[in-house]
Design a protein around this nucleic acid. Sequence first.
DNA 1: GTATAACCGAGACGGTACGTCCCGTCTTACC
DNA 2: GGTAAGACGGGACGTACCGTCTCGGTTATAC
Lengths: 199, 199, 199, 199
Amino acid sequence: MTTEHQSRAGRPRSERAEKAIIAATLDLIADGMGVAELSMEAIAARAGVGKTTIYRRWANKEDLVVDALATIRHPLPPLAGESVRDDLVALLDLARREAGQRRARCAMNVALSESDRSKRVSERFYKLALEPRRVAMREVLSRGVANGELRPDLDVDLAMALLTGAMIFFNKWGPEGDLPEDLAERVVDHAMAGFAPRA
Amino acid sequence: MTTEHQSRAGRPRSERAEKAIIAATLDLIADGMGVAELSMEAIAARAGVGKTTIYRRWANKEDLVVDALATIRHPLPPLAGESVRDDLVALLDLARREAGQRRARCAMNVALSESDRSKRVSERFYKLALEPRRVAMREVLSRGVANGELRPDLDVDLAMALLTGAMIFFNKWGPEGDLPEDLAERVVDHAMAGFAPRA
Amino acid sequence: MTTEHQSRAGRPRSERAEKAIIAATLDLIADGMGVAELSMEAIAARAGVGKTTIYRRWANKEDLVVDALATIRHPLPPLAGESVRDDLVALLDLARREAGQRRARCAMNVALSESDRSKRVSERFYKLALEPRRVAMREVLSRGVANGELRPDLDVDLAMALLTGAMIFFNKWGPEGDLPEDLAERVVDHAMAGFAPRA
Amino acid sequence: MTTEHQSRAGRPRSERAEKAIIAATLDLIADGMGVAELSMEAIAARAGVGKTTIYRRWANKEDLVVDALATIRHPLPPLAGESVRDDLVALLDLARREAGQRRARCAMNVALSESDRSKRVSERFYKLALEPRRVAMREVLSRGVANGELRPDLDVDLAMALLTGAMIFFNKWGPEGDLPEDLAERVVDHAMAGFAPRA
DNA sequence: GTATAACCGAGACGGTACGTCCCGTCTTACC
DNA sequence: GGTAAGACGGGACGTACCGTCTCGGTTATAC
C-alpha cells in the first residue's frame, strides 16, 4: 500500500485560486501591459482573490509572471524525420506562427527584457519554452551531420544560432504585420545553402 | 538697445545639468536596472539635479531613456572593402566586442525588451544603433552579389537577419563571460558556406 | 440505558486549551499591549492553539479580553471592623499594592481605556473588580455614619469617589516606580480630615 | 532688520492640508472610533489628502492622534481668586462640563488608554491638556495654605489627587447621562470639609 | 465495537489597513 | 526664466491580522 499522503497540515491551497491568478496575469499581460505596468492589485482583483493568496505562492511579481508565462504551452511541432530541411522548417514555422499571437509574443518580450536584471526570469523561461525546441533542433541537425545530409564539420551550435537568431530578428524588426508564410522555408534554405555562389 | 541674441529671455538651460542627467540615466541602466525599475528620483539624485530640470526637457521616463541610449556612440568599423567576408567579420566583431561592455549590452537589452510596451524606445534605438550598421551590411552584401562573390539570387534581407540574429542570440543566450574572439569569423564562414556538404 | 449526563455528544472541549488561551491573553496584555494591539494570531500561537479553538469559545477579541480580565482575582482584604479609618486604609492599600503588579495594572488600564469603545469591557471589569470593593467601602462608610465616626450628612458616594479616584489618579499619573507605602494612610487621613484648618 | 527667514528650501508644507488632516482625525474620532479603529486611509480620504502628506508630518497613527487631540483647546476657566473654594469649583466644573462633550471625552479616553503602551501619547496629552489645570489648581491650593484658608500642613499633591480623581471617577463610572450640575460644588465641599463630624 | 459527532492543530481564504516608494505636478527661494 | 529643493495627490508595493473556511486527525458518547 502506498499511502504516501503528501498533504501538509491545514487547509490545502485552492487550485481554483491558483488557476484564476495565472489566468488573470496572462490576461492582463496580453491586454498590453509590460511586466512593470502590471499590478498585483489588478491581478488579485481580476482573479477575485486576496493579495495574500498570491503572495503565499509567489514571492513577488516577477516570480508570478515567470510561472504564468511558463504555463503557456509551447508544444513541439510533429517532425516527420524524413529530411533535415523539412524538420527545420517545421520548427521555425512554429516560431513564425507564434509571433502572431499576443500571448506568445508578450512572453517572448518579457523573457528577453528581464535577462540582465533578474536572471531567474529569463533562465526559467528559457528552460521551459526554449530548451525543448533547442534540444529538438540539435537532434535534427546532429542527425543530419550523421547521415550525410549536412556537412560533417558543421558547428551545430552556430547553425542553431543562425536559424533561431534570424527568427528573433524578424520578430523584432521585421516587416509590419504578420510575417510571410514562407519565411521559415526561406530562412532554412538560405542557411543551408549558404551565401556562396553555387559551384 | 538691440542685442541680437535670439535666445529667449531668462537664464539659459544648463548644459551641465543635461549631461549629468544623461550620464546618471545610463549609469543606472548599466547598474542593472530595467527601464521600469529605473526611477526618475534616483536619476535626479544621482545627477544632483531637481526633478523639475528633468521634466522640463523630457516629458517622461521613456523619452529620457530613448535620448540617453541614443547618446551611446555606435561607430562603424572601418571596412577594407576588399572581400565580403572580411567586411562582414569586421561588422559582426564590433557587435561581439560591444557585448562585453555593460552599457552597450544593457542598451541592447532595453531596446529588445521595450519593443511591445513602448514602440518608440526600440524604434529609436533601431534607427540610431542598428540602422547604420544594417545599411553598411547591406552595401557589403549587395556589392558581393554584384561582383559575384555571393550568389546572384541571394535574399539580402534574409542574409542580414541570419548574421545579425546570430550575434543577438549569442549576446543573450551564449556562453557565460566574454564571447570567443573568433566568433564573428565562424558565424560569417558558416553563414556564407551554408550547412550543405561540400559537393 | 439512562446515563443522566447532560453533555452533548462528541469530543468535549479541552479545558487545557481554554486555560492556555486565557493565560496567553493576560501575558500579552501584561507584556504591554493595549487591547487593540493584541492580536488573535499572537494569542493562538502563544497558547499553542488553533485560531478556531479561540473563535469557537469567544466571538471576538473583546469578549476574550473581558473573560481574561475577569479571571484575575481581586480578593478583598480582611477588614478588622474596629475603625472606619483602618478599614479604609486596608481597602486603599490593596489598590496601592496592586498598582505594583503588571497584570493588575494593565487590567486597570484596559478597563479605563475601553470604556467608550466597548462599554462591555469596562462594565464587566467594574462588576468583577471594582463593585465588590465599592460594596465593602460603602459598608464601612455607612457604618461610620451610623455610629458617629463620620458626620451624619456625609455623601457616601461622593466620599467613595474621592478615595477611589485618588488611588486611580496616583496609579496613572503618580510618581515613577512603586507608590510610597504610607500612601493609603495619607489619602484616608486627608480625605477624612478635609482641607480646612483645624478649628 | 530681522529677516530671520526660517523657511527651508523647497515648497513649503501646506497649512491647509495640515488643518484638514487634524480636522478629519478629530471628526473620525468623534464619530465613535477608538484610536485603533481609526484608519490613516480614512483620514487621508476624508481630508482630501495623500497618505504621504500625513506621513511626512507624523511618523504613525498615534503621533497624529496625539497632535490632533492636543489641538482641542482646554482653556482655563476664569478664576476670581477671592476664595479657594470658588476657584476649585470653577476648575472642577470645567471638567464636568467637558465630560458632556464628545471630543473632550474621547480625548480623555485616548489619553487614559495609551498610558502603558505608548508613554509618549499620554505624556504629551498630559503636558498639553492636564498640566495647565494642575498648575492652576496647585496655585489655588498653595495660596489657600498661605493665607490661612487651608490648613498649613495640607499635602497639596494629595489634595489635588482627591479632587481630580473624584472627577475622573464620576466621568468613568458615574451615573448615566450628564453629571449633576452641582457636582463640582459638592466634591469641593466634601473634600474641604472632610468626613469627620463637625466638632 | 463501531459509528458518529464535536472537537483539535494547522493553515489557506478574501479582505482591510499598514507604512514606504515613486510617479508626474506644483510651489517656493535663489540666481 | 532656469534651478535645486521638496511638498503635493495618487497608486502600487509587500506585510500583518482580521474573522471564516477547510483539511486530516483525535476523543468522546451513543448505538
